[in-house]
Amino acid sequence: MKKRRYLLIGMSAALLMTTFSVTGCAQETGENVSGEAGTEEAAPKDETEVKDGETEAEAQSESGGDTQNSDGDQSSSGEEAETWNVRVYYVDDQTAEVTGKNVDVRDEYDIWTALQETGIITEDCELLSLTLNEDDKTMDLDFNTATGDRIRSMGTTGETEIIGCIVNTYLEAYSYSGIRLTEEGQPLQTSHGANYDGYTGIISF
């Protein structure tokens, strides 16, 4: 009986120790697994935040650049699109009469180019400057010698037509009342002695 009792006591003790050992291992294993799992979950979260931050920064940077470019483009586009409609006068080849056509222009040089395209002045004719005097609504238009030679190469009627087309086109384009024509800074003189030293208004044909 004593041997059996000792045997039972020994088995109970061994069983109890085994239980404690298994429980302890399970707890220790659970802590390690939990710790590792926690670490693995935290790392992707941190990486995601960093990536999101970088993406937002890049997006803001790209967005800012696009806005600047867009504003710049709109402003350039606006400047390029700022045109107005003017009537350009010329001599019709078939009727030999002064007529006109409407064109869109951006500045005084576009007007000059339009006059060249009608044939009233040639390609070697060059506009040097146009000065607007807002106080009295007059303007000073200066061109090169080739333009003066073009005017003087015509007869009296031809001179009047060329000058009239230039004068009327610019006066109407800017709604001004007087214009002075100069040839490289000097008053224009025609072949028949006319001197355009003063300001001229609209010319009738």
Rank of each mutant, 00 (worst) to 15 (best):
A43V: 04
E40R: 15
E47A: 11
Q60T: 11
D66V: 00
T29Y: 07
G35F: 03
G64A: 15
K51E: 13
T18H: 08
G24R: 03
Q27I: 00
A42M: 07
E36G: 01
G38L: 03
E54S: 04
T29W: 10
A37W: 05
E40Y: 15
M17T: 09
D66T: 03
E31I: 08
L15E: 05
T18A: 09
Q60H: 11
S34G: 14
S63Q: 10
A14R: 03
A57Y: 10
G38S: 08
A26F: 07
S61R: 15
L15C: 10
S63I: 05
G64Y: 06
L16K: 02
E49H: 02
E31M: 08
T18C: 02
G38R: 08
T19A: 14
N32Y: 05
G35Q: 09
T48C: 10
D46S: 05
G24E: 00
S63F: 12
T48I: 12
E31G: 04
D66C: 05
D46V: 13
A42W: 03
D66N: 00
V22A: 11
A59G: 11
Q60M: 13
E62N: 09
S63H: 08
E58T: 08
F20P: 00
S21V: 13
E28D: 13
K51D: 06
Q60G: 06
A14I: 12
K45W: 08
S61M: 11
N32A: 07
L16D: 05
T23K: 01
T67L: 07
T18R: 03
N32W: 05
T55V: 14
V33L: 06
E36L: 07
A59T: 11
P44Q: 01
L15H: 04
